[in-house]
Write a protein that binds this DNA or RNA. Structure first.
Length: 521
DNA sequence: CTAAGAGTTATCTTT
DNA sequence: AAAGATCCACTCTTAG
């Protein structure tokens, strides 16, 4: 079989990478020893207490009490109807507040929460986390509807590392990653790269205390930036079905986060409409796809299925259709004008975890699946079944993501088999496996390596609360970003599509960190 | 072939 | 400070 030889070479590579990995571990251990990490770990308790105090916003402790006594809860619909939203003095009063779940015990039901097969008003879905929701709700609506209407498109940094490999020389110490606190020596790490290629030096990414926020209360499954430079807004979806917004850098401590619960099960995908930023698509394990329309203040129901929807993707410049996966390997195309699914294929033998498109050639799509493969598809030829794929990448375990690089010239996959797969070459004929511990277990959303703003670096979380930066040219972990502000494992990431050097990482506790490049102060 | 169960992992809340 | 709850991820094992 052809797969036998492929497996053999993969095994050879594995040992090669394993060897290098062990060398790296040894080096790191020596370095950590020299930096006196071990003794610092001993008094972790003291520092972690201090750090968590810093990481969480100090004022957030008295807010939301989302605990539930009864797991099955129906959200009381239309309670807000007819209530004037001005009365702010009536904090916590169920009778007067238009957002009565501020102090009630119902808002976040756990499992088996029934889904509603129809539109949900935004006010009904609003999770009042602050007791002052009426004012913040209005602020939110004004913020999202207040875009100028001009949509900027991705400037598309088309710059590949192919052909520049020769420039990468032997290991040299390039620099050290920065940290915010002088007393935290442990976040410094040696970086080896002859020179920094590409449009951004990842070492310039800086995490500031004001850029750490808790958005949702559950495990974050999806995170996205709004494609606009007017305001920096991050939207997240979590395991409880919540969709949260963070208006970065504006408003006071509490007002910049708004939280809704349009779904009864985990939110699997988010897509902000490229030409209409007040419309946001969300998909969920509850089988629903909703369109949040902030102008109309409603979560419309677009699609419903008995199967879970596991991923959602929209081509960058196409607002007339979107692609989503459901059930065991099915992929659908939704036609906005027809208002129905216009094509449906069974592409994999198990759930499809990610969908992505080649930004330079829109006929090429890549999917990743729990069946252990990632496939590149030529949409002009796609019928059904993996045997018809343009290219299939085989992993030994479930594959959680597969993304085209910004130039479209590479594909990076992330698998539970502890590898990041890198596909290069004019016809994606070269496959490399880069070792990375992706064993996240049950409580952490699976890691997914995402591309930065060029073809040189990938970003992915690690189990030690750092952000590994993978060099595509060197095919290794070139550096790791650390910060004492990170109090949980960042597992899902997004880049700002229009601002080079703006990176968001989200955790299982609902927190989001935003790194920003540049201006060292 | 399918179902059920154990083990794995980290974070937040409660005691 | 330590224990308890989480509970649709995935893999492997065992029972039918």
């Amino acid at each position: 079989m052809a797969t036998a030889t492929a497996t053999a070479t993969a095994t050879e590579r594995m040992t090669e990478y394993e060897r290098r990995r062990l060398e790296n571990i040894k080096r790191n251990d020596e370095m950590m020893a020299s930096l006196n990490i071990r003794s610092r770990l001993a008094d972790l308790s003291a520092s972690s207490k201090r750090l968590s105090g810093k990481a969480k916003s100090p004022k957030t402790s008295p807010k939301k009490k989302p605990k539930v006594e009864t797991p099955v809860v129906v959200r009381r619909s239309l309670r807000a109807r007819g209530m004037p939203p001005e009365t702010e003095g009536s904090k916590g009063s169920d009778l007067e507040s238009p957002f009565p779940n501020a102090d009630s015990k119902i808002p976040i039901s756990r499992k088996h929460s029934p889904r509603k097969l129809g539109p949900i008003s935004m006010k009904d879905a609003y999770e009042d986390t602050t007791l002052y929701g009426s004012t913040f709700y209005k602020t939110f609506v004004e913020t999202i509807t207040g875009f100028s209407g001009v949509t900027q498109l991705n400037p598309c940094i088309v710059d590949t590392f192919e052909g520049k490999k020769e420039e990468v020389g032997d290991d040299k110490v390039l620099g050290y990653s920065n940290c915010n606190f002088d007393d935290q020596v442990c976040c410094k790490k040696e970086v080896k790269e002859e020179k920094v290629l590409g449009s951004l030096d990842p070492l310039s990414l800086d995490l500031k205390p004001e850029n750490v926020v808790r958005i949702t209360s559950g495990r974050i499954m999806a995170v996205k930036f709004f494609p606009s430079t007017e305001k920096n807004i991050i939207v997240t979806g979590d395991k409880l079905g919540q969709v949260g917004f963070w208006n970065v850098g504006s408003g006071d401590e509490e007002g910049r986060v708004s939280l809704f619960r349009p779904h009864s099960s985990p939110v699997s995908g988010i897509s902000v409409q490229p030409f209409c930023l007040s419309k946001i698509l969300t998909s969920s394990y509850d089988g629903l796809i909703r369109l949040m329309d902030v102008e109309k203040e409603v979560f419309e129901l677009v699609y419903s299925s008995d199967d879970a929807v596991f991923s959602l993707c929209q081509q960058e410049k196409d607002s007339k259709s979107f692609y989503f996966s459901e059930g065991h390997g099915k992929l659908n195309i939704w036609d906005e004008r027809a208002g129905k699914v216009s094509a449906s294929w069974v592409l994999h033998e198990d759930r499809i975890n990610s969908i992505d498109f080649n930004s330079q050639n829109r006929n090429f799509m890549v999917t990743s699946s729990t069946d252990g493969t990632a496939c590149i598809w030529d949409l002009r030829k796609t019928t059904t079944g993996k045997q018809n794929s343009f290219k299939t990448i085989e992993h030994k375990r479930a594959v959680h993501s597969a993304y085209f690089s910004p130039s479209g010239g590479c594909v990076a996959t992330t698998s539970f088999d502890n590898n990041i797969g890198l596909l290069t070459g004019t016809n994606y004929e070269n496959l490399s496996m880069i070792y990375h511990n992706n064993h996240t277990g049950r409580w952490i959303s699976s890691f997914r390596a995402i591309w930065g703003w060029d073809d040189f670096f990938l970003f992915i979380g690690n189990m030690k609360r750092g952000v590994d930066v993978i060099s595509a040219a060197r095919r290794n972990t070139a550096m790791t970003l650390w910060s004492p502000l990170i109090s949980a494992i960042p597992c899902r990431f997004a880049i700002h599509p229009l601002r080079v050097g703006m990176l968001a990482g989200a955790t299982s506790g609902g927190q989001v960190y935003m790194w920003v490049a540049g201006d060292e102060k």
